[in-house]
């Protein structure tokens, strides 16, 4: 079962538009949603949450249309943005009092346990918290009604590596329950490499790739050589090519290439750069 299904989503915002965006997130998995700044990650997520109105297309969460079943769906999701969007004069204890009015399933003891675990002060105003603390508070708020799906829009951007690592561990802890799923938008590919099961790449409002991370890491390879050597690669094996420092580089399907060609294991970042900056043709 897919917890998220998006079919042919279209949304125009000024000069930018999402063009027939389609992808799915299977239950029990983490989908890394990646793309450069302005690629359309946040726009897609906002459409998924009905914060932006889609022009056409279909968005299903838990198999239900987000516009028709907005309230029941929002009971089962936790959302973390790139910052905590609550009045800055509130503190974590006050937020508990407020949030328990919104969710029947709100678990105050779980919330305060998370605050202790994350070292978030209970009585400090949001405006007095560091960015890392605000994000941890935001995650505690998103988790404490026990959602089945977390939607994370750049939750680690602008954070130092130590805080990022702590936050990623929290998400891995959430994924201990097999019915839980995460959509994780980020342009930090190392975060996705650590946590994601699937990768969806968006570029200029179009989905270029949506694939299992293992397929990307173990079935793809990078060949580096001269133009002539790249020319010798079987055409159907080449996914993208680009100019390298000492000649040409090609992203290829490993199993379609003769073992005589020495291939390097790609990182997620390599694959994304090939898709975004590379060419489909050899030259």
């Amino acid at each position: 079962m897919n917890v998220i299904e998006i079919h042919d989503l279209h949304k125009s915002l000024g000069n930018f538009s999402l063009k027939d965006v389609s992808f799915a997130v299977p239950q029990g998995t983490v989908m890394g949603f990646v793309g450069e700044n302005g690629a359309g990650k946040s726009t897609t997520i906002k459409c998924m949450l009905n914060l932006l109105k889609k022009q056409y297309g279909e968005i299903l969460l838990f198999g239900k249309d987000i516009v028709e079943h907005e309230l029941s769906i929002k009971n089962d999701i936790g959302v973390v943005f790139d910052d905590l969007y609550v009045p800055e004069t509130l503190n974590a204890t006050q937020l508990d009092k407020i949030m328990k009015k919104f969710f029947k399933t709100w678990d105050s003891s779980y919330y305060f346990e998370r605050l202790v675990q994350f070292n978030v002060p209970k009585r400090k105003k949001v405006k007095e918290l560091s960015r890392g603390m605000r994000m941890k508070l935001s995650i505690a708020l998103a988790l404490s009604h026990h959602p089945k799906l977390l939607i994370l829009d750049e939750p680690t951007s602008g954070l130092d590596p130590i805080i990022r690592d702590e936050i990623l561990d929290l998400f891995l802890e959430f994924m201990q329950d097999e019915t839980h799923s995460i959509l994780f938008s980020s342009h930090i590919t190392s975060d996705l490499e650590k946590i994601a099961d699937y990768i969806t790449l968006i570029h200029n409002g179009e989905i270029l790739l949506s694939e299992s991370k293992d397929v990307l890491l173990y079935e793809y390879g990078i060949f580096k050589g001269s133009n002539e050597e790249v020319n010798d690669l079987p055409e159907h094996a080449i996914i993208r090519t680009r100019n390298g420092t000492f000649g040409m580089e090609a992203l290829v399907l490993k199993n379609e290439v003769n073992q005589a060609f020495k291939l390097e294991k790609p990182s997620i970042e390599d694959i994304l750069l090939f898709y975004v900056k590379g060419r489909v043709e050899r030259w």
Partner: peptide
Amino acid sequence: TYDEQSKWDRFANTLPLT
């Protein structure tokens, strides 16, 4: 005004509220 400054509406509209 507080809501606007903190972008509260973005957060509120992710909650089960009409």
